[in-house]
C-alpha cells in the first residue's frame, strides 16, 4: 500500500471522530436552538406590536448583513474585552444559533404567511385559542412549506460549522488541518475533510426527501 493510501486510512478515523464529536453535535444543537429563536423572531415580526416587529427586523438585518465569521469572532475574541469570556464550544453554539435564528426566521415567517387566512378562521370558529390555532392548525401546515428552505439552512450550517475551527473547536476541519500540518499532505487531508462533509450533507438531503414525502401525504399531487 502506498504511503498516501496509508495516510488516508490512518487519518480517516480521527477526522470522522471530529465529525462525530464536533461537527454533528455542533450543527444539531445550533440548529435546534436556532429554530426556537427563529420561531420567536418570526412571531415577533408578525405581531401587531410595532416595537416587537422592529426589534425582529433589526435582529434579522444584523445577522444577515454581517459575515458569520465576524459574528463568531465578536463573540469569542471580542466579548472578553467587555468582561464576558466564553469557551470555544459555547461561543460557537451561540454564534451559530443566532445565525440560524436570523435566516430561518424569514423562512418561518413566509411559511406562516403562506397558510390561507381561512385556516386561522376555521380554527377560531371551532373555539381555538390563538396558541391552539398556531400550534394545531398553522404551524403543521407551515412546516410542510418550510422543509426545503430549512434543509438548505441546515446543510449550510453543517458546512459553515468548519469556521469553528478558527476559534479552536475540535471538529472535522480542524482535525484534518492538524494532520495536514504534521504530514504536509495538504491536498489529501483537505480532500478527505471535504469528503466527510459531503457524506454528511448527502445523508441530510436524503432525510429531507423522506421528511418531505411524509409531510406531503395530505396534499393532492
Amino acid at each position: 500500500m502506498s504511503d498516501n493510501a496509508q495516510l488516508f486510512l490512518d487519518s480517516l478515523w480521527p477526522i470522522v471522530e471530529g465529525a462525530i464529536k464536533g461537527t454533528i453535535p455542533l450543527a444539531l444543537i445550533s440548529f435546534s436552538l436556532g429554530l426556537i429563536i427563529a420561531l420567536i423572531v418570526a412571531l415577533m415580526r408578525l405581531s401587531k406590536s410595532k416595537v416587537l416587529s422592529a426589534l425582529a427586523r433589526i435582529y434579522i438585518s444584523i445577522i444577515r448583513g454581517t459575515p458569520l465569521l465576524v459574528q463568531l469572532f465578536v463573540i469569542f475574541y471580542g466579548m472578553p474585552s467587555v468582561g464576558i469570556t466564553l469557551d470555544p464550544w459555547p461561543s460557537a453554539i451561540i454564534a451559530f444559533s443566532l445565525n440560524v435564528g436570523g435566516y430561518a426566521a424569514e423562512v418561518i415567517r413566509a411559511a406562516i404567511l403562506s397558510v390561507p387566512r381561512g385556516q386561522w378562521e376555521a380554527g377560531y370558529t371551532i373555539g381555538m385559542s390563538q396558541t391552539q390555532q398556531l400550534g394545531r392548525v398553522i404551524l403543521p401546515q407551515a412546516a410542510r412549506v418550510s422543509v426545503p428552505p430549512l434543509s438548505n439552512t441546515f446543510i449550510s450550517l453543517v458546512k459553515d460549522s468548519s469556521l469553528a475551527s478558527l476559534i479552536l473547536v475540535t471538529e472535522t476541519f480542524r482535525v484534518s488541518q492538524e494532520i495536514a500540518a504534521f504530514s504536509q499532505e495538504f491536498m489529501l487531508l483537505y480532500i478527505e475533510a471535504a469528503l466527510v462533509y459531503w457524506v454528511i450533507s448527502t445523508f441530510l438531503a436524503f432525510g429531507q426527501s423522506m421528511l418531505e414525502e411524509r409531510l406531503d401525504r395530505y396534499v393532492s399531487k
Binding site: 390561507p116 381561512g118 385556516q119 378562521e121 376555521a122 380554527g123 370558529t125 371551532i126 373555539g127 381555538m128 391552539q132 394545531r136 392548525v137 403543521p140 401546515q141 410542510r144 395530505y218 396534499v219
Partner: peptide, 26 residues
C-alpha cells in the same frame, strides 16, 4: 358555528380529525 364558502377544512387532518378537533381539543 360557521360553515365557510371554501369549507376551510384542515388539510393536514383526516375527516374524522377535522370533526373531532373542536370537541376534543377545545
Amino acid at each position: 358555528a360557521m360553515v365557510f364558502q371554501q369549507h376551510n377544512l384542515f388539510p393536514h387532518r383526516t375527516v374524522l380529525e377535522n370533526v373531532t378537533e373542536g370537541p376534543i381539543h377545545v
